[in-house]
Write a protein that binds this DNA or RNA. Structure first.
Lengths: 213, 213
DNA sequence: TTCAGCTATGTTGCATGCAATATAGCCGAG
DNA sequence: CTCGGCTATATTGCATGCAACATAGCTGAA
């Protein structure tokens, strides 16, 4: 993602971060004038940013009623995890089949290590961020240039809901183990293994989400 | 899709149709001022429409350089059909598992009949349109409300490239047969069957596209 | 002749002002 | 006391004007 030089890009990034880190909670209104004043811009670029966020599925705009941060229901959650269970194993398999260079594999392992370290520090916000980066990296590694765009709309869920806060240590450890195992499967160039682990990983996450809600 | 009452919606629909029916060819520039004058609007709603079309993957906007109709490469085609092969069988299976009411099944069969009739008349543009409507109806029937949005970006391909013009009668007949068979599988409430036929359908289409290009 | 640099032009990007619309609160009838 | 309708207000939607940027064409030197 290129850093936004245009005003609309900075508005997009800023509001996006506000939603992802929780300063704009689900259901909150996002007034154009209010945001414009806060950001020191006019309403035009803010409006464009809100449109793009709506396309990403982060906000919803109602005609003549403005934009709101989307509030996820549990059916949304189910739908999202079903689609991820479909697409991410495919991405992992593709990555394993095509193969990754040493630098990419090292980057993935570094992400694993950083996530584990953040988990030790109980910094769950950081865990969520790094987890998303890991999955995004894998999706990029699939080689299908359309996949990242397709999944943006469903990749925000764990960031917005503080999913990882509810993970007990054992579940968390298993999740990290899955990440490590996916990287090993890709290193071994075994698509079936990679897809299988990723499927388990997402099913486990969905189950954890379901049980405490 | 609700009919657009706002100016931005009419601009969106109009330009979208221009792209889908070929009056705006891949690679063509889409100037804001020019479109605004043509549509009798100002640049603001046109600009919003172009943003939305870019989110749909129908146009690409380059900073300070305006919007162009996307030109698909053959790798794009491969990527698109891989994703469709992943998602549409899932949609068909879901529809079969959940089950459709009589009205929905009749609507699907009517679409099949209309497509066959258009094929007899050699009206390939109409075939393309009806084919898209069939697939869209199936995706809607999956019950996953996020699937339609996810697939919009990849569902335009057969419309933009005049895919069906190249189909010989036998291939065309097989394609229609697949459609009929999917509906039968859903009627029989057999998810595996439905998914399998849909997979065959898309693989066959991809093969046909590949061979004459 | 060729190419670097500059300028002219057309386009997008942004700001602002006005019109249109939805909502909240109030008023009055039942 | 409750509910239907109206009005006031705040917000979005759209139009227009100006500024910023990218590109094409020209000029001039090597």
């Amino acid at each position: 993602m290129s850093v936004g030089r245009r005003a609309a890009d900075t508005a997009y990034e800023t509001v996006r971060q506000m939603i992802l880190d929780g300063s704009a909670a689900p259901g909150d209104r996002l007034g154009e004038s209010e945001l414009a004043e806060t950001l020191g811009l006019s309403r035009t670029p803010v409006r464009e940013a809100l449109q793009r966020l709506a396309a990403d599925g982060l906000v919803e705009v109602l005609p003549h009623r403005g934009a709101r941060v989307v509030a996820w229901t549990d059916t949304d959650l189910t739908e999202i995890f079903e689609l991820r269970t479909l697409l991410e194993p495919y991405a992992a398999a593709r990555a394993a089949r095509v193969g990754l260079d040493a630098a990419a594999l090292t980057a993935l392992r570094d992400l694993c290590a950083a996530t584990e370290e953040a988990a030790d520090r109980k910094d769950m916000a950081e865990v969520a961020r790094l987890n998303s980066r890991f999955h995004a990296a894998l999706i990029d590694a699939s080689g299908n240039s359309r996949l990242p765009g397709m999944l943006t709309s469903v990749m925000h869920a764990p960031l917005i809901l503080g999913t990882f806060h509810r993970y007990d240590p054992a579940t968390m450890a298993r999740s990290m183990g899955h990440h490590r195992e996916v990287v090993d499967a890709i290193t071994a160039r075994d698509p079936e293994w990679a897809a299988s682990v990723m499927r388990s990983h997402l099913r486990a996450a969905a189950a954890t989400l379901k049980e405490d809600q």
